[in-house]
């Protein structure tokens, strides 16, 4: 199969959709000729023109508001925020407008829009450009939250997000943009709310999101050499969450390690851990659930400290061994 980068897969998903659906357009800062902060929309303005690849002023609140309005009037906008940290400015539009309108109008209006935005650390972009704030939006009913980890997943999930009649927050990971994978040429959709078992195992379940999926897989590889069989589950969408797959996996392995890059305190891992503790998998737990997440500090600029802030492969290995009393 053909290989594409994660970034190319995002672009292809949008281009293919825009070719067949006139209602879809993109708006964001410098997404036109410049191609966006990470170059995702590069070349698209040449194909779709400035009407559909719309540069906006530097106002996330304005962009989001415009997208909500467009969606309400029947368009299917995709808006791009340069860094997911800036969602703070768009928060009122997303939380109080986008998330609520369909509910408050009894379904008479809907807000089919996708907010695409790169998150995560590892690029030396320091405290204001490196955060993973997905737990904030996951907390708000009315918003769907997607965190793809591979080129294949990102194309299919973005198609599903664009097809969805609800506002979807679509997190792309900065460090994943350059990763490659097999991606089918035709359009396809991966349903939101369907987790993917990235690796099967029997001794411990590692639920990992975004870039942590790759670190978990690497850890699993190392653990296998020591006879520990780890199952790696990628939820892919935080809202809706595929609880069934995770519960089944934990019931099988009796041990759970949740890994995400976002700060551990109040992170989405707490939701997954609680969900398991409340589920029928509880009686199968044979070790305390472990969470790995970012440190309780702003993300440092110093590259070494930046690495230390988020879980790395050895941390995952260590956590897994602790659940197995082998640390």
């Amino acid at each position: 199969m053909r290989e594409l980068t994660y970034l190319e897969a995002v672009r292809e998903a949008m281009s293919q959709e825009m070719r067949q659906n006139e209602d879809v357009f993109i708006l964001g800062e410098d997404i036109g000729v410049y191609g966006g902060a990470f170059g995702v929309t590069r070349g698209m303005i040449e194909e779709f023109g400035p009407e559909r690849i719309r540069n906006t002023p530097i106002s996330e609140s304005g962009i989001a508001g415009a997208a909500v309005g467009a969606a309400l009037t029947g368009m299917r906008p995709i808006l791009e925020l340069q860094f997911s940290d800036f969602i703070t400015i768009a928060m009122d539009q997303m939380v109080n407008q986008a998330a609520k309108i369909r509910y408050m109008y009894g379904g008479k209006g809907k807000v089919p829009m996708v907010l695409r935005t790169p998150s995560g650390s590892g690029t030396g972009a320091a405290a204001q450009h490196s955060q993973s704030l997905e737990a904030w939006v996951a907390h708000v009913p009315g918003l769907k939250v997607v965190q793809p980890s591979t080129a294949h997943d990102v194309k299919g999930l973005l198609k599903a997000a664009m097809d969805d009649d609800n506002p979807v927050i679509f997190y792309e990971h900065k460090l994943l943009y350059k990763t490659k994978g097999d991606v089918p040429e035709e359009q396809y959709s991966i349903p939101l709310g369907k987790a993917d078992i990235k690796r099967e195992g029997t001794d411990v379940t590692i639920v990992a999101t975004a870039i942590m999926v790759h670190r978990a897989l690497e850890a699993a590889e190392e653990l296998e050499k020591e006879g520990i069989s780890a199952e790696v589950v990628d939820p892919r969408t935080l809202v809706p969450l595929d609880t069934e797959t995770i519960i089944q996996s934990v019931s099988k392995t009796s041990r759970l390690v949740v890994v995400h890059e976002a700060v551990k305190r109040g992170g989405y891992g707490a939701e997954i851990a609680s969900m398991i503790a409340e589920s029928e998998a509880f009686d199968y737990l044979d070790a305390p659930i472990k969470r790995l997440g970012g440190a309780s500090s702003p993300i440092p600029y110093n590259p070494e400290l930046e690495k230390m802030h988020v879980p790395q492969v050895p941390d995952i290995i260590q956590a897994v061994k602790e659940t197995l009393n082998k640390a």
């Binding site: 009796s254 509880f282 009686d283 199968y284 737990l285 044979d286 070790a287 305390p288 009393n325």
Partner: peptide, 24 residues
């Protein structure tokens, strides 16, 4: 004891206090 240990001991009518644990 872990929930899994409790479940199995419950299913087998075994007293947990008689079992020495290998964990922390």
């Amino acid at each position: 004891a872990t929930p899994a240990a409790r479940r199995i001991s419950r299913e087998n009518d075994l007293s947990l206090s008689a079992i020495s644990g290998s964990g922390p």
